[in-house]
Design a binder for these strands. Structure first.
Length: 567
DNA sequence: AGGTGCGGGGAAG
DNA sequence: CTTCCCCGCACCT
């Protein structure tokens, strides 16, 4: 379904209304989705239900119960960047749990031939210098997935890989068979393991201290890299901030990126590297970090994906790569050839998205935007000057379906990323006389087991544009969990699983009634169904202290919702 | 023990 | 005031 089903992906995770997706059009689960991907899974998709990813994604609290946001933790690499016998690099999956991850850091490199290497996090900065983020949203019979950013690191090995086991399996630094093996093999060069252990301990303590002291300032930079350093690795070298970097991004760029990254990863490699100095340059395709510029589009998708927008979207030439929205807005679609991205990448200053350089783990973008409210942003990015968006936008303002950019499929249809990356990975492996390690190649399907009884669904809309939404109004709450469209979707034990957002959607549908019709019968049905309810316009608010939920001035969605909103 | 998600609360801008 | 992230908790595997 690469690029094919048009309209299918004409949505953004933040849209008030996400399109309904026919059962037949659900995507196959993508464990390694990379790049700007939007996928729609069935609510019956076990992996999707678990929000699984091959990447080490950790939950980041965005105080939006309707959209789960996760950010990439990167990979664990050897501080010495040693090479395994098979020619690959240490590339382990960081533990999701903070505590566990902390324990991982500083551990001895599991590579027997490595001398003194220790594991350290190579943070993901694939999204404008920030970690790649994944968003999950349950709606109707579908689970919407959206990824932002392109991982600037290799795929981590599965947790149960041999290397991983050696690294983390009950092996302490001072004792244990595996460790004994490791240190034994290099004992001739390394004086005493106790020394290593001591060093590691030191490092760990230092890290702890650092994290204590510096806390937020280093939060997103576990290794204590300055914003400048990050910049050097992610910005184009021309722009003073990410905000200003207008390097564009193409599908093809991913490949280039991945490949170059791979090689770079092999040779130089941050964070250890003393050659951190080499600033990425847009023009230089050779430069690993050049491609790291996913920009504004991530945060302010060009699309306003309402059913209408989706269908009514005029088909502009899918020529432009990822660029600042402003560029997209202003540049004529003149290059249908992705390979030209390099040259295209240099446009400067048009985008002024003001991502502050403050280190943050998660992406700086607004968590939940009613894009109907921020149409203008498409031109202004997140400009400092522009008062920007108000996230407490209300339904009063109608979504505008007129500015849909149909470059979407081109931009966001990133199914190819996967193969791109695999390509890269493969190449790397072949490049080094690939031996075994079948488990880290694309070979294995999912190293997560599917559980039938998973009940941890949190992000669920009964809304969408799905028809037969008799339960829409009261639905999404508790038991029924919505119109029987998803019988298997139980709301588990987490009390807060139901969707106000759904209601919001409904109301948006009402508000947008006029144009929603174009969305098709389904949408229309939903819209009209809701119309009957005619709920007061809910306010999408993000400032109710930390409870960024939808607040409905009144409830047509009684108890739970009320309780929830009561926060 | 680790993965996952929720949500409080502090901190920064 | 808004936004972000750390951290602890609860629950699950």
């Amino acid at each position: 379904n690469n690029g094919s089903s048009k309209g299918k992906r004409d949505w953004d995770i933040n849209d008030a209304i996400v399109p309904q997706v026919a059962d037949l059009e659900f995507d196959e689960f993508s464990e390694w989705s990379d790049g700007h991907v939007r996928l729609v899974y069935s609510v019956h998709n076990e992996e999707a239900k678990k929000h699984i990813s091959g990447w080490a994604m950790r939950n980041t609290n965005n105080h939006n119960v309707n959209i789960l946001k996760k950010s990439c933790l990167g990979v664990l690499v050897c501080s010495q960047h040693c090479t395994l016998p098979n020619g690959t690099k240490i590339n382990l999956r960081p533990a999701i749990c903070d505590k566990a991850r902390r324990k991982q850091e500083g551990k001895a490199c599991p590579n027997k031939s490595c001398r003194g290497g220790r594991l350290e996090i190579k943070p993901c900065r694939g999204h404008c210098g920030y970690p790649v983020t994944h968003f999950w949203r349950h709606s109707g019979n579908a689970i919407f997935f959206q990824a932002k950013g392109v991982h600037d690191h290799l795929r981590p090995d599965p947790k149960n890989s041999s290397v991983s086991k050696r690294a983390f399996g009950r092996v302490s630094l001072t004792a244990g068979k595996a460790n004994a093996n490791l240190t034994g093999s290099r004992s001739n060069s390394v004086p005493k393991k106790s020394v290593i252990a001591g060093l590691v301990k030191q490092v760990k303590q230092q890290q702890n201290l650092m994290s204590k002291v510096l806390k937020r300032s280093t939060a997103s930079q576990p290794l204590g890299h300055s914003a400048l350093e990050i910049y050097q690795f992610n910005a184009c070298g021309k722009c003073t901030t990410y905000s200003h970097c207008t390097c564009s991004y193409l599908e093809e760029s991913t490949r280039a990126h991945q490949l170059s990254q791979s090689s770079n990863y092999m040779s130089s490699s941050w964070p250890l590297a003393a050659n951190v100095s080499e600033p990425a340059n847009c023009e230089s395709s050779a430069n690993v970090f050049t491609v790291n510029h996913q920009h504004i589009t991530y945060n302010y998708p060009i699309y306003h994906a309402t059913p209408t927008a989706a269908t009514a979207a005029p088909s502009k030439s899918p020529s432009l790569p990822y660029t600042c929205i402003s560029e997209l807005a202003y540049q004529p679609a003149n290059q249908s050839n992705p390979s030209s991205y390099a040259s295209n990448a240099i446009s400067n200053g048009s985008c002024q998205l003001a991502y502050e350089s403050s280190p943050q783990l998660a992406t700086p973008e607004p968590e939940f935007i009613n894009y109907s409210q921020i149409k203008h942003l498409e031109l202004g990015c997140k400009s400092e000057t522009t008062p920007t968006i108000k996230y407490n936008a209300t339904v009063e303002t109608q979504p505008v379906a007129s500015y849909a950019e149909d470059n979407y499929d081109y931009y966001y249809q990133r199914e190819s990323n996967k193969s791109d990356y695999e390509l890269q990975h493969q190449q790397q492996q072949q490049h080094q006389q690939q031996q075994h390690y079948g488990n880290i190649s694309g070979g294995h399907a999912h190293y997560y087991e599917s559980a039938n009884s998973y009940s941890g669904v949190s992000y669920f809309d009964t809304g969408t544009t799905a028809p037969g939404s008799g339960s829409v109004n009261s639905g999404a709450i508790g038991s029924g969990s919505g119109s029987g469209l998803n019988p298997s979707l139980e709301h588990g034990s987490y009390g807060s699983y139901y969707d106000h957002y759904a209601n919001y959607e409904q109301q948006m549908a009402v508000a947008a009634n006029g144009f929603a019709v174009a969305g098709g019968t389904a949408a229309a049905a939903a819209a009209s169904a809701v119309t009957a309810v005619a709920p007061p316009a809910p306010t999408l608010t993000y400032h109710h202290h930390h409870h960024h939920h939808l607040h409905h001035s009144t409830q047509h969605a009684p108890p739970q919702a009320a309780a929830h909103a009561a926060h």
